[in-house]
Nucleic acid binder design. Structure first.
Length: 474
RNA sequence: GGAGAGGUGGCGGAGCGGUUGAACGCGCCGGAUUCGAAAUCCGGUAUGGCCUUCGGGUCAUCGGGGGUUCGAAUCCCCCCCUCUCCGCCA
């Protein structure tokens, strides 16, 4: 949610922000509705003030006359009734007018709220303007000693790599046909060492954040109410991405949704709270199953573990004081944790500055991390299906800086002393970043650590989480 | 799933359809007293919106939403949540 006051002061900034992000949002309509809303509100309020005043003045008289009415008869009774009716008529006359204004107000607010929920957070000034992911800008890349970016995997390692699909098949790590039988397209079953490796990565990533970097480990619901989805900014724009559980139709009070990221649960924890400023920043890490309908992605990445409906993800979230410099510093730090993790896993990767068109509605800035996947990209030789692929980067992480956009929607504030403290409240800032999403992260792990004999070396960092030093399928 | 009880300010806890945004107590802040502290006494202590000549004014908020009424924390309806007992279950 954007700040209505800022919108009033500088609508151009939001118009420009939406344009840069390539998102439709009727900023001008919102400004006009806001003006009408305030005007209507003022009229309704002054009338109500008058009504309240009258009710207070005439109330005791009505009470007294009503008391006398009980024992009155005949002409006296008729006189009293007329007197009461006369006194009541003055505030009653205001009532109708106030109700009319309130109805108008409700309509204005409902339309305004709908538009406000769709006005995106303007991108930061230093985010490159661009239409889509094509215009993202590489910031830096890293690879372990011995890897030459200018050469293919085959030239680097001396043998032609298998794709993760081939490795999963040959080593018995994933059963795709049975996954599809159970749950349809984009489904899979992790088997044996596939499941072991999956668990090893998640557990390593969890410990890495909790024990090495001091994040508080949490397990949060993945079935949430609509407010959590709207509050975190995934609704309304991402509604079709979420699995919807229609509980209302069965008589329950509200429907539920499956979350596509642990961010929803972690951020929703403190919805409508006033946190103690001294307790900030809050640093949380969770591992949760993520559900994504992948609507609109039909035909893309249909094979393998890349784009799937259900996966597990270790996610980090930071809620800090509302200070741009502090937000920026945390963004860097949260990216640092990920590059440290990927270096420990010996995975070549690069950081991408996302352009305005790729930010989504809620982010002021977003940095993606992509790992090198030798089995991705175009066919090495279109004539020879056995020649493999040229390799490409694949997105494995995404670090978002949201400022107060999310906390405003969640009504998540802070102040010195917290709930009962003193001083003004302010909406907190929030950030989030992937730590490890599996099984997607298994793709670079398997493909980069495969050996000429078809086995896969388990990187040292995972050794204490995996029973052997290699996966050989035997 | 069945039966019952209940949601009031930072906390506890009153509350009659009519100057109740809300008694009282605790906590917190300021002051007095004290060499200092405790105790005591006095005063002040919610949030949000809108307007403002920046003094303030005004509206809303007693779990949430709707209704009755000239007037609702109080009466009616729906929903959410918590607790107790029974049943079921991991």
């Amino acid at each position: 949610m954007i700040d209505l006051k800022l919108l009033r002061e500088d609508p151009g900034r939001f118009r420009e922000g939406a344009r840069k992000k390539n998102i439709d949002a009727d900023v001008d309509r919102a400004v006009a509705l806001d003006a009408r809303r305030r005007e209507t509100m003022q009229r309704a309020e002054s009338l109500r003030a008058e009504q309240k005043k009258l009710a207070k003045e005439t109330g005791p008289a009505i009470g007294r006359l009503s008391g006398r009415l009980k024992s009155a008869e005949g002409e006296e009774r008729a006189g009293l009734e007329a007197e009461i009716a006369e006194i009541k008529s003055r505030p009653a006359a205001l009532k109708g007018e106030i109700q009319g204004l309130e109805e108008t107000l409700k309509e204005l607010e409902s339309e305004l709220d709908g538009i406000l929920l769709q006005i995106p957070q303007p991108p930061d000034g230093d985010v490159p303007v661009g239409a889509s992911a094509e215009d993202n800008v590489e910031i830096r890349r890293w690879a372990p000693a011995g890897w030459d970016w200018s050469k293919s995997f085959e030239a680097n390692r001396g043998f032609r790599p298998k794709t993760h699909l081939e490795l999963c098949e040959d080593l018995g790590l994933v059963d795709f046909p049975r996954g599809v039988k159970l749950s349809g397209s984009r489904s899979y079953v992790l088997t044996g060492d596939g499941m072991r490796l999956h668990q090893a990565v998640l557990r390593y990533a969890m410990d890495f954040m909790a024990e090495r970097h001091g994040f508080a480990p949490m397990s949060v619901p993945v079935i949430v109410r609509e407010e959590a989805m709207t509050g975190t900014g995934f609704f309304p724009s991402g509604r079709e991405q979420a699995y919807h559980i229609e509980e209302r139709a069965r008589g329950a009070g509200h429907d539920l949704y499956l979350t596509g990221t642990g961010e929803v649960g972690l951020m929703g924890l403190h919805q409508s709270e006033i946190l103690d400023e001294e307790a900030l920043p809050l640093r949380y890490v969770t591992v949760s199953t993520c559900f994504r309908r992948e609507a609109g992605a039909a035909g893309r990445d249909t094979a393998g573990l890349y784009r799937i409906h259900q996966f597990d993800k270790v996610e980090q979230v930071v809620i800090c004081r509302p200070d741009e410099a502090e937000s920026r510093a945390w963004h860097e730090r949260m990216l640092g944790y990920v590059t440290e993790l990927l270096e420990s896993l010996e995975l070549p990767h690069r950081l991408l500055q996302c352009c305005t068109g790729d930010l989504g509605p809620k982010n002021a800035d977003m940095i993606d991390v992509e790992c090198w996947m030798p089995g991705r990209g175009e066919a090495a030789d279109p004539e020879d299906p056995g020649a493999g692929f040229v390799g490409d980067f694949g997105e494995t992480h995404s670090a978002s800086r949201l400022y107060d956009f999310q906390c405003r929607r969640l009504n998540l504030r802070c102040r010195p002393g917290g709930e009962g403290g003193k001083g003004a409240t302010a909406f907190c800032h929030s950030l989030n970043n992937t730590v490890a999403a599996s099984p997607r992260i298994l793709i670079p792990i398997l493909e980069m650590h495969q050996r000429a004999d078809g086995s896969v070396r388990v990187p040292d960092a995972l050794r204490s989480y995996f029973p052997r030093d290699a996966i050989s399928g035997k």
